[in-house]
């Protein structure tokens, strides 16, 4: 009908969307650009900064002065460790709730969710004291434990919503064919459940990687993950913009990449299946 009008409209929307997207992304882009500058150039006016020469100096310095890779490794161990432990506990639970639902399954799920509503400060003091008394302060083991418990309700819920979508008839057919419970789980359910488990894992690694209450409260240096490492830049000495940018870029890059793959799961996981 009016092809020209709709073409104009597409162009206008394209311009508007790209402008807004660029503005929202700009702080991240700017940080990445600044990380390739010298400290002297980083504090110049934006145009002078952009036109100055590029260097990897800040990356070298961040690694040498504050041992970035140790913190990176702590983040990897803590986020992956807590996700894996949570999965080991949650998979059987979600499986049984999805396939052998009882009268109280719904209440149980709601109760699990309600543990997530407890604000962390409510238990800060006893957690801190228990960690101190058991020698867990500044240990990766302690953080893996806490983050497992924090994310467990989300893991159970996400897995439950995925498992729910596996048709029950397939299980009954397998049973009729004489499959035992063990082979039913191993050969029928597992292959169908793998995508859901992978998505759950991805989202929870992201959440654990960025967790910034317990990681800040319960670590100081030895077990400090990247959240704590970056927080140490809050009281800097001397010129530090380029180094802060380099450290920030390295801290967010792995998760930005993972995150872009998990947009859909993010919606589902964070709304507990209420929006799909």
């Amino acid at each position: 009908m009016s092809r020209n009008v709709s073409q104009t409209r597409v162009t206008l929307v394209t311009i508007a969307a790209w402008t807004v997207g660029f503005l929202i992304f700009f702080p991240i882009l700017w940080t990445i650009l600044m990380s390739f500058k010298t400290e002297g150039d980083a504090i110049k006016t934006p145009i002078e900064m952009l036109t100055s020469s590029w260097t990897l100096e800040s990356y070298h310095e961040v690694q040498e002065r504050s041992d970035y890779f140790r913190h990176f490794w702590n983040s990897v161990v803590i986020s992956l460790g807590s996700t894996l432990v949570a999965l080991i506990i949650a998979i059987p639970a979600a499986w049984s709730m999805a396939f052998v639902p009882g009268k109280r399954t719904k209440d149980l799920l709601m109760w699990m969710l309600s543990t997530k509503m407890m604000p962390a400060v409510g238990v800060l003091v006893p957690m801190y004291l228990m960690f101190r008394d058991f020698g867990l302060l500044d240990s990766r083991l302690g953080l893996v434990g806490v983050l497992t418990l924090i994310n467990l309700p989300i893991v159970v819920w996400m897995l439950y919503t995925y498992f729910k979508e596996i048709p029950g008839e397939i299980l009954e057919a397998a049973r009729m064919d004489g499959a035992s419970l063990r082979s039913e789980i191993l050969y029928v359910l597992t292959p169908m459940a793998v995508p859901g488990i992978a998505s759950t894992m991805l989202l929870n690694v992201i959440l654990a990687w960025n967790e910034a209450f317990w990681t800040l409260q319960l670590t100081t240096s030895k077990a400090a993950p990247l959240t704590q490492f970056i927080a140490s830049y809050s009281s800097p000495e001397g010129l530090f913009y380029a180094k802060l940018s380099a450290a920030s870029t390295m801290a967010i890059a792995p998760i930005l990449i993972l995150g872009w793959f998990s947009q859909k799961q993010l919606v589902r996981g964070l709304t507990f299946g209420a929006v799909k």
Partner: peptide
């Protein structure tokens, strides 16, 4: 409908993946 939907979506969602200490300090 507009051109480059995938890229714009990625740019818009990005801040959510930035850890709180990084975004605050930046």
């Amino acid at each position: 409908p507009f051109r480059g939907q995938g890229i714009v979506r990625v740019m818009v969602i990005a801040p959510f993946f930035v850890m709180p200490t990084v975004s605050a300090l930046v």
